[in-house]
């Protein structure tokens, strides 16, 4: 019974972290699906989302607003607006001018943007770890107090539900809305979509904005869950989310969701049963294995040569 509870606890830990990886991974996978480039500055957009949320929370606290749902919603909206604006601006400044060139050029431009944003936040906010207030306390516990007690915190539940809502909204948006249909068309064939009268520039901008908004949601959630943020934390999270996107099949939205969850659970079970030191070894080893045996990722479709 105790072992089962322990397994359950590690599974919950893994799913929590995995669902936020998935939120960030969407940004990578959508951009790749549409223009075939890897937006390495995406992790920084997530980091900026977390900083904006913290600034909003601190600002509200000084104004005396403490009603939790209001604080969370205002922080979330602020973070999403700033991150989306940032995602849009990054695309305009760093990617659009080099679009259509050799694929290495936008990649290098993206890495440059990532370094720029990291250092910008370093300068603007200082390089130290900043504590993030834990706004949601408590949780459900299972098991008797004498032995191992599994705990699902309200924070973890909040992360699950928020992720679920975001993912559902995104799926509906992509499959039902006019812009979503245009997104799918552009991802199938950018040139043809353009010929048929779709404003592809607008659709590409929309992709960046959606990815950035979801990353901002992840920024707020993870900031509260972990408890501190620093200018470099977007880099590691971005790397993990990118791995999740490739694992699930880059370019595929359900793939990014699945990839994130698989990666999160693999990490948490490794550190739970093996050792925390092997966490990254296992997650990146898993990536290599999948790429060897199924290069398109778990849910990716093989790329058909377009004639």
């Amino acid at each position: 019974m105790q072992d089962l509870l322990y397994f359950f606890q590690q599974l919950v830990n893994g799913l929590t972290i995995g669902s936020t990886y998935a939120l960030i991974a969407i940004g990578y996978t959508m951009v790749y699906g549409i223009i075939g480039m890897i937006n390495f500055a995406h992790g920084e957009i997530y980091m900026i989302g977390a900083y904006t949320a913290l600034i909003a929370i601190t600002g509200l606290a000084t104004l005396g607003v403490t009603w939790l749902p209001l604080v969370l919603i205002v922080a979330l909206i602020c973070a999403m607006i700033v991150s989306s604006a940032m995602g849009w601006a990054v695309e305009r400044v760093a990617y659009r001018p080099v679009r259509g060139r050799h694929r290495l050029i936008p990649l290098i431009s993206a890495i440059g943007m990532s370094i720029f944003l990291q250092n910008y936040v370093h300068l603007a906010q200082g390089s130290r770890n900043i504590g993030f207030p834990a706004l949601i306390h408590g949780g459900f516990t299972f098991g008797s107090p004498d032995t191992f007690q599994a705990q699902i915190s309200y924070m973890q539940i909040t992360i699950f539900i928020t992720t679920l809502i975001c993912m559902t909204a995104l799926s509906v948006f992509i499959s039902r809305s006019r812009t979503g249909r245009a997104c799918r068309a552009v991802s199938q064939d950018l040139g043809m979509a353009n010929l048929l009268g779709i404003d592809t520039n607008r659709i590409i901008s929309a992709t960046f904005v959606i990815g950035a908004a979801l990353a901002a949601v992840a920024g707020l959630l993870l900031g509260m869950y972990y408890g501190s943020i620093d200018p470099l934390f977007g880099f590691i999270a971005g790397l993990k989310a990118f791995t999740a996107a490739v694992l699930g099949g880059i370019g595929s939205i359900p793939g990014a969701m699945l990839g994130g969850l698989v990666l999160g659970v693999a990490e948490s079970l490794t550190s739970g049963y093996l050792s925390g030191e092997y966490k990254d070894v296992v997650s990146f080893g898993l990536l290599i294995l999948i790429l060897l045996f199924k290069p398109t990722g778990l849910l990716g479709k093989p790329e058909v040569e377009k004639i």
Binding site: Q2, Y6, Q9, Q10, N13, G14, T16, I17, F148, Q149, L222, Y225, Y226, S228, L232, F233, I236, E267, S268, S271, G272, S275, G276, E277, K279, D280
Partner: peptide, 22 residues
């Protein structure tokens, strides 16, 4: 006796393990 990665943020698995080891 275990190592973590400097710069990591998520210690939920480690903490569950510490709880389990009592």
């Amino acid at each position: 006796f275990e190592g973590i990665t400097a710069g990591a943020k998520d210690f939920s698995s480690l903490i569950s393990k510490l709880k389990q080891a009592d």
